[in-house]
């Protein structure tokens, strides 16, 4: 058994402070275990959002030593042993209390996405036919657990506060899941450009770096969507060819 110091943000949005706690560490402990220990032994009013403790619900997102992480998947023995461990709430969202943030802007972004629109069924029983390889791309995006770590690390939201103009990487992933699905027929390229604000993304790939599900957010979701926007809005040659094809 050894002891580690945890420096934890305590307070609300406007006023808060870092408070230090000493916690006894046992083998295999994760940061969320330490937070629970502090709650139980030293600070029963410490606000922490959590649920599954298995890296699948996306509830316990916070910043550990400055990096957005799931606290339930961050082992204490992987953090530098000679320094205190700092845990702060996600910086891109308003603090409700301590480590709990108001992520409701994400729900608004989600609602704005044009819904999945399947083509007419392929079979009389109302079902569709497609191959597994055709849906592989969309299934990668379905791994998203909505932890919002990608939203948190995205500098467009985090540093520039463009929550109104930019839906963020998590929802560009959702758009990509619909757009690349073999039976979806909706064209969301204008939505992604105008409402989704994809032009704000300058592809610095931090979203990919922090994703706990290892979704290749930038290369497989955002850049392909940017290319679809180019098809539709920035490629006069392609539009000319399409016009000639239609009239021909």
């Amino acid at each position: 058994m050894s002891e580690r110091t945890f420096r934890i943000y305590r307070g609300m949005q406007q006023q808060g402070e870092i408070v230090a706690y000493r916690v006894e560490i046992s083998e295999g402990m994760v940061v969320l275990d330490a937070l629970h220990d502090i709650q139980e032994q030293q600070a029963p009013d410490l606000a922490v959002r959590w649920n599954c403790k298995a890296g699948k619900c996306g509830s316990c997102s916070a910043e550990v030593n400055g990096m957005p992480r799931l606290t339930c998947m961050t082992r204490i023995d992987e953090l530098p042993a000679d320094q205190p461990i700092t845990v702060t709430p996600m910086q891109a969202f308003p603090v409700i209390k301590d480590l709990v943030t108001d992520v409701s802007s994400n729900y608004a972004a989600n609602k704005s996405i044009p819904a999945f629109k399947p083509r007419s069924p392929d079979a009389p029983d109302g079902s569709w036919r497609f191959y597994q390889y055709e849906v592989d791309r969309a299934q990668e995006f379905k791994k998203c657990i909505e932890c919002f770590l990608c939203q948190d690390v995205c500098h467009v939201l985090r540093s520039h506060g463009k929550h109104e103009e930019f839906i963020g990487p998590a929802f560009l992933v959702r758009v990509a899941a619909y757009e690349t699905h073999p039976i979806d027929v909706e064209d969301r390229s204008t939505y992604v450009k105008e409402h989704g604000g994809i032009g704000y993304c300058n592809i610095t790939k931090c979203c990919t770096e922090v994703c706990p599900e290892h979704i290749t957010i930038t290369d497989n979701a955002i850049i392909p969507l940017k290319e679809r926007v180019v098809d539709r809005h920035y490629d006069p040659l392609r539009r000319l060819i399409q016009m000639v094809r239609r009239t021909g």
């Binding site: 704000y200 610095t204 770096e209």
Partner: peptide
């Protein structure tokens, strides 16, 4: 990632000139 930047400038990303020209990559 997760490092602060200068917040005074009006960030427009690739929505406006000159970086909107990145769309000419193809």
């Amino acid at each position: 990632c997760a490092v602060g930047e200068h917040r005074g400038h009006r960030y427009r990303g690739e929505t406006a000139f000159p970086f909107v020209l990145q769309n000419l990559h193809r």
